[in-house]
Write a protein that binds this DNA or RNA. Structure first.
Lengths: 162, 162
DNA sequence: CAGCATTGATTTGCTAGCATACAATGGTAT
DNA sequence: ATACCATTGTATGCTAGCAAATCAATGCTG
């Protein structure tokens, strides 16, 4: 079935002889890099406020679903429960968030924002708009829409494939 | 200058009163998610061969730049030296790669592939093609090119902004 | 209502990234 | 030559993911 290739040199020959998928590769590569550029940028900008990009994302989602359980937040953020839990724990340590027990179910802890987070949200808001303007410069609305559509299709395909 | 917002409720009001950037947000959100979907997929598929997506990337780059120093590989992969070093170290522990001292400069260690990696490259090749076909289903070549162009523009903007 | 399955959250152990700091080596300018 | 600076690789400490196991509380079912 699969060709027997035992040395790196053999693989180099094999690889040279087959058609390339350079565009596909380039697209994946770009996604990979862009994603890290985004992370690093937000990490750097917000470092002085002791906020990471991950905590930024978490705060945004908590803002939109205040009172949700940790598991719900994990689902919404497409994270494992453990990962979500530890981000929330750090946010709580910083006094931006609090976990309150659910009165009806002693297993769950619901997450609420605390007022000390308000200035952080102002900062995120400002920086978010600044970033949008800078990064999207020269990308027209139609172009942006088709970008989103294309990415969503890939995402759907990937999710469907399991 | 910046409005004084001291409570979450005040921020909610402030946020409601301003124009939204839902498309921009959606695009960033999508990039974030897609990137993790990619990582998780490759991690899962290759887990049985004890290969992570990060190691996959590293092997690809080493393949294309055999004999490079660790710093060079870090630069190519847009990684910090430390991160690149630890990935390479793991690859070496698995016997897929070896680090040889440079005869002229005792500081540098150059990275070479070892033959036991050959079957891994075959697997990566197969799985890569399978993934490309699945994920890009229904995305025409023109569409793909404009996706790449759009992402590249955003990447350039982001890099230019520092 | 007793036993078992399910669910929420946490713990542990691994990989991976960043930033920073450091030792050793190499290069350069005086 | 030697004193200073740059570069390479590594070490350390932090955040962040995943997976798998665990614990407690709840829900379901016979």
């Amino acid at each position: 079935m699969t060709q027997d290739v035992r040395t790196i040199e053999q693989f180099r020959a094999f690889e040279r002889a087959q058609p390339r998928y350079t565009d596909h590769e380039e697209l994946l590569y770009m996604l990979h890099e862009l994603s890290r550029i985004i992370s690093v940028h937000f990490d750097r900008v917000m470092a002085r406020h002791h906020l990471t990009h991950s905590q930024w994302w978490a705060l945004m989602h908590i803002f939109q679903h205040e009172g949700a359980t940790q598991s719900e937040i994990a689902t919404i953020m497409q994270l494992g429960r453990a990962s979500a839990g530890s981000v929330i724990e750090r946010l709580e340590a910083k006094g931006w968030v609090e976990r309150r027990p659910d009165p009806k179910d002693n297993r769950v802890r619901r997450v609420y924002l605390r007022d000390p987070a308000a200035p952080i949200f102002m900062l995120m808001n400002e920086e978010g708009q600044r970033v949008f303007k800078t990064w999207m410069a020269g990308v027209g609305p139609g172009e942006e829409a088709s970008l989103i559509a294309g990415l969503r299709r890939i995402k759907t395909n990937a999710e469907a494939a399991g």
